[in-house]
Write a protein that binds this DNA or RNA. Sequence first.
DNA 1: ATCCCGAGGG
DNA 2: CCCTCTGGAT
Length: 217
Amino acid sequence: MAARQLNRDQIFELFSRLAEANPAPRTELDYGNDYQLLVAVVLSAQATDAGVNKATRPLFREVKTPAQMVALGEEALKEHIKTIGLFNTKAKNVIALSEALIANHGGEVPRDRDALTQLPGVGRKTANVVMNTAFGEETFAVDTHIFRVGNRTGLAPGKNVLIVEKGLEKRVPQPFRRDAHHWLILHGRYVCKARKPECWRCVIRDICLFKDKTPAP
DNA sequence: ATCCCGAGGG
DNA sequence: CCCTCTGGAT
């Protein structure tokens, strides 16, 4: 029993408009190299990009490599990221992940999903973000925003993130596949917000299947 | 299904 | 006060 979903023409129009609204989308996480990106994405679980950037700005000035992170140590890392939620688990994972990079990957960030998800604290979503942002692959990292937008709009309905990811893989057309991830994130963060979506100023308002469209305040 | 867990916004 | 934020491991 399939949920209501958009057709091919509607999906093409949806991305055309999101692309026009934001021609060159980019992650809002700050980082200087692939390793720092990986760490920033791990830290961003259940946290805002702004909050992560506040902590990583001083951290990344000192730490640019896995070896430097291991040298810093878990307790000092905790002090750096104390303002981020789940900091205890994250600090432990970042140290272990850095040690694994040194031991198994020559200190480099691996490019394939299997190797990435074997790293401590790195699941499918984080791996997909790194593959897309660092290596330019057409992966669809389904986070809280994309899960919500996919379901609300009818772009890629699904009761769990893997179903939504498969729906996106199947339906998102070229030339939008590379940056679809960023457009959906930005749309979810600033317009199609969880608590109070701003439908009155949404550029895909007429396409979206969301029932309870919100009026202008 | 539950735990981890601080900052920011409404 | 409450909910949300680019989840992962058990």
